[in-house]
Design a protein around this nucleic acid. Sequence first.
DNA 1: TATTTATATTCCTTGACAGGAATATTCCCT
DNA 2: AGGGAATATTCCTGTCAAGGAATATAAATA
Lengths: 112, 112
Amino acid sequence: MKNSEMDITTLSALAEPNRMNIVQLLKGGPMAVGEIADQLGIRQPQASKHLKVLNDSGIVEVQVDANRRIYKLRSEPFQAMDIWVQSFRHIMEERLDNLDHYLRELQKKERP
Amino acid sequence: MKNSEMDITTLSALAEPNRMNIVQLLKGGPMAVGEIADQLGIRQPQASKHLKVLNDSGIVEVQVDANRRIYKLRSEPFQAMDIWVQSFRHIMEERLDNLDHYLRELQKKERP
DNA sequence: TATTTATATTCCTTGACAGGAATATTCCCT
DNA sequence: AGGGAATATTCCTGTCAAGGAATATAAATA
């Protein structure tokens, strides 16, 4: 019955620009290491290192294709982040408790 | 028309255990520095330092109350994270496209 | 088999960051 | 005004992570 404990390793893996870029890139679909490095303008060894971090944290998984490794996003970490963020619903939905908001609500009731 | 660019500073601020604990604590409502430090079993200067990081990244805001500073969560970063995570809908909803999944679906249809 | 292609790993150096201890700052209270 | 409470800041130190360069590994190909 896991409440909403967010895995720190997921966040720290994403909290690095190159890795965040890799994740954004992989949103478009699976991709091999070389192409990832090309697209992002980084060197292949750095790409491999960052992909290792992403892999260790479970954000990506790898599919071996002969010579190459195709990396793709895994769904679980994003589902976990979704659940975690949703646990802040009451924070996100917080409305300004001022006159302005009051007047808006009033208008809604006058014109339903 | 900002698409879904996630602010790295938000993630790196959260990617530290003490700060994550502070955020979880503040989910319950605003709190002064001293009580935060007490609840988490950390020293006051560390609490202040971490709160400074959280404040700089916009995750919390502070309300001055005479001698004390009351910290509370801001809504924007969580809304931003929500939007960002939602941009991975297609990843999260991805179903296994294999025989196993096919058979499960078949069973569902046989026994509705 | 030799060579090329694709990727991972190692070593090194540098910079950022977290904790500890001490101190500064600000406000309250008598 | 002086003392105490609450918080912020500074200095120091050790750890860790990222990039660069070189190299190792493995598969494809000629």
